[in-house]
């Protein structure tokens, strides 16, 4: 590239009238080494620009904040609480039902045994009646 052209581009560059392509041309010229002595001060400038462009963000990107993690945790905890309360409630209900069932059975058993006792008494009563019938009502026949 001729020197005159570079000088013209530099003039334009200082007035901020160069396009990106022209600026790339300038960068190439100054990075390639053979720089005219009276333009040496630009070498550092363009050198700096190109080395700066190589800097990278090396840390890993974190998309979860601590706050959000807590939020999720609380949601999970409330779900667990809800489920456990629900199942616990079911459990209690079941036990209550079982207790009521056994109690009723017990009561019914009590009733039936007592009724049976009554039956025996009634059977004896029957025998008594039979015998009285034998004794008092036979003569009528």
């Amino acid at each position: 590239m001729e020197l005159a052209n570079i000088e013209k581009l530099l003039e334009k560059y200082l007035n901020a009238e160069t396009t990106i392509a022209e600026e790339k041309e300038l960068k190439n010229y100054f990075l390639n080494g053979n720089v005219a002595p009276h333009l040496e001060e630009y070498q550092a400038l363009f050198g700096y620009f190109s080395t700066s462009k190589n800097e990278r963000y090396t840390k890993t990107i974190q998309l979860k904040s601590q706050k959000q993690r807590w939020k999720w945790l609380s949601v999970a905890a409330s779900i667990v609480l809800l489920v456990s309360v629900y199942s616990g409630y079911e459990n209690i209900q079941q036990r209550k039902a079982e207790r009521v069932y056994t109690e009723t059975i017990g009561a019914l058993e009590l009733l039936s045994t007592n009724l049976n006792k009554g039956n025996v008494a009634i059977a004896q009563l029957q025998r008594f009646e039979d015998t009285t019938n034998k004794i008092f009502k036979q003569p009528k026949k």
Partner: peptide
Amino acid sequence: IRVSLSRARKTIREQLL
């Protein structure tokens, strides 16, 4: 932007010189 860019480039160039 062109104006302030031009100003910045000229300042840097003068200092470098």
